[in-house]
Write a protein that binds this DNA or RNA. Structure first.
Lengths: 245, 245
DNA sequence: TCAAAAGTGTTATGCCTACACCCATGC
DNA sequence: GCATGGGTGTAGGCATAACACTTTTGA
């Protein structure tokens, strides 16, 4: 990762990787080696790669996972967004002259968001960072460069998609309970929903299979387990829900 | 436009410029000089420009207009999308060696869609084209490279935005009638709507001012004129309509 | 037996849909 | 006067929102 010849100049991508854990929406972040600033996992695009392939590669490297749900959402092209890029400082300290040239150029970054099953992720830092960790949305502040803006835009897009697309297959384990699914929706939307109405509505979409099993081990009354009906789920992904006109 | 040193390598943008005329949704296209293929107006990004600024510049050049409603919607990054780029052939014929190198590189294109008042546009071809014309959606086929795909994605995005955002201010003259606005919606959505329900719904958004004037000159009963209530319109643009959760 | 969480059903409201009649204008 | 398009109102159905009681379980 110190030979940049294989990559397209001034093009980068940043990934907002969402996971759901302990009833919180979390994002996978890297802590830069020298500046200690937190940053979104990102990468560059090889000369024969599509952006989607590049994003998959980055995702694989940071999470160990394949086939991640991935969605591009915006291009961040402000010519000043790369100014004072802390990564440059990180490279100065690491003494890589070649890298310095690379990092001092202007970067146009395409934002992707990814939805992953928290438990399946094995976080791995990259060459420029020494930590890779999940952070709950509330504990995140002061990200590198314009990464806060990128994160906000990703969240905004995710919320929008929620209103006309099913979500959850990529964020939850194979079997899950209705309260868990509801918590996921509530977390993304940032507001609480009525239990009964939520259930009626989500069931009306026909994207769930109710299982005979109940979730054991928890306290109190054991909730039923559900799984996604993939056929209908994928159909809903393509066609979308309702739409007002 | 034959000195490409001022521009970022392998980055381009393409604009899908929508206008509304004679109850049809139309798109502004260019006809390439040598291949005679039709193409979306596009351009490159200067080294100190944001994509949005570059798109505005392109829009200004093709339409003569400023302050156009502009929205980026997707990045097209397939490494093969530039293969057999007919513009290269156009350049071969025009004998520009420098241009050849430029055009033979891989391009990553960001798609923007624009909404404009048809009557205000003064179409102007660029260096590589000899015609710049409005085409109704139905008459469009066989566009250059992946431009058909870009157009389709723009239309899909526009339809989606229609369900949660007001639209029309940028596409219609200052004063317009309810039937005209309805035709616009019907055209974008590709289906017909009930007159009375459309009117009730659009009025419920409070984004219109009903004027005392009626449209004169037309045959039959003269319809009332409306204008957009900009304050509410802009508020609706920001906040969006409803949303199912 | 009590507290906490989960399962389930009913009612009211409002929005969307479908539909009909009258009015103005040009031919 | 008739065809065409525009203005307006109403009834039914479906989805959403608000809301309460019962059941299970562990402590």
């Amino acid at each position: 990762m110190t030979n940049f010849k294989a990559y397209l100049n001034h093009i980068s991508l940043d990934c907002v990787i969402f996971g759901f854990h302990e009833n919180q929406l979390k994002v996978l972040l890297l802590q830069m080696k020298y500046t200690k600033k937190w940053a979104l996992p990102g990468g560059f695009v090889k000369k024969e790669e599509s952006f989607e392939e590049a994003a998959e590669r980055v995702l694989k490297e940071r999470t160990g996972m394949d086939n991640i749900f991935l969605q591009q959402f915006h291009v961040f092209s402000d010519p000043k967004r790369s100014e004072m890029n802390p990564a440059v400082k990180d490279l100065e300290k690491s003494g890589s002259g070649e890298g310095l040239d690379w990092f001092s150029q202007r970067f146009i970054s395409t934002g992707f968001y990814a939805l992953v099953d928290f438990h399946k992720v094995d976080p791995a830092p990259d060459f420029f960072s020494d930590k890779c960790e999940w952070k709950a949305l509330e504990e995140i502040d002061n990200l590198m460069m314009d990464h806060r803006q990128i994160l906000d835009k990703a969240l905004e897009t995710l919320r929008l998609h929620l209103t006309y697309q099913p979500i959850g297959y990529n964020l939850l384990p194979k079997k899950f309970t209705m309260p868990e699914l509801q918590k996921l929706y509530e977390t993304i939307l940032g507001k609480s929903l009525d239990r009964r109405n939520f259930q009626r509505k989500i069931l009306s979409y026909k994207i769930l299979n109710k299982l005979d099993e109940r979730k054991k081990g928890g306290a109190y009354k054991a909730p039923y387990l559900y799984e996604f009906n993939l056929e209908n789920y994928n159909k809903a992904l393509k066609e979308g829900f309702s739409g007002s006109w």
